[in-house]
Computed example of a mutant assay.
Amino acid sequence: MTTAKHTPRKAFLIVDDEPLARMELTQIVRDCGYAVREASNTVEALSILEADSDQFMGLITDINMPGTRSGIVLANHVRCIWPHIEIIVVSAARTPLNGELPERVEFLNKPVPPSRLVSAIQSSSQH
């Protein structure tokens, strides 16, 4: 009898308050072979990261979120606390101002073409 050797899969955390947008992003990331966790707001996202940040290699977050913390605030917080996590920020509503996002963050306009997201994911996995 052979035993399968399990290698830990790195995961992406998808944060978007719009269920359909979150579902679409999740499917693209899963199609790239990564595990995915989802959050519908920044408070939920931080709770997930605080519980087990080591499983995540990437974060994909929308800018506009319910509550007091935007995706930009989340991106800056994640970069400070968990610098190993690569970050992709998306938005249909606005483009971040110069200097709003931390270093090493890719911004994509929604709707995100799947090929563009795949390219950003592949780029982040090489860091």
Rank of each mutant, 00 (worst) to 15 (best):
K5G: 07
K5N: 12
H6P: 05
T7S: 09
F12I: 08
F12C: 05
L13N: 09
L13Q: 13
V15W: 02
V15E: 05
D17M: 04
D17H: 14
D17G: 02
A21Q: 04
A21Y: 04
M23I: 04
M23K: 15
E24R: 15
T26L: 00
Q27R: 15
D31P: 00
A35L: 07
A35E: 02
V36H: 14
A39W: 05
S40L: 03
N41G: 01
T42S: 08
E44I: 08
E44K: 14
A45W: 05
S47K: 15
L49F: 05
D52R: 02
D54T: 12
F56E: 01
F56M: 01
G58N: 07
T61Q: 05
D62R: 12
P66V: 14
P66S: 10
G67S: 12
T68F: 04
S70R: 12
I72H: 02
L74W: 07
N76G: 15
N76Y: 07
V78F: 00
C80P: 03
P83E: 01
P83S: 04
H84C: 00
I85A: 05
E86M: 08
I88V: 15
A93W: 09
G99E: 00
E100G: 03
E103L: 14
V105E: 08
E106K: 13
F107Y: 06
N109V: 11
K110E: 05
P113R: 13
P114F: 02
P114I: 03
R116W: 07
L117I: 07
L117F: 12
S119N: 08
A120Q: 03
Q122D: 15
S123A: 12
S124G: 08
S124I: 09
S125W: 12
S125C: 06
S125L: 04
H127K: 14
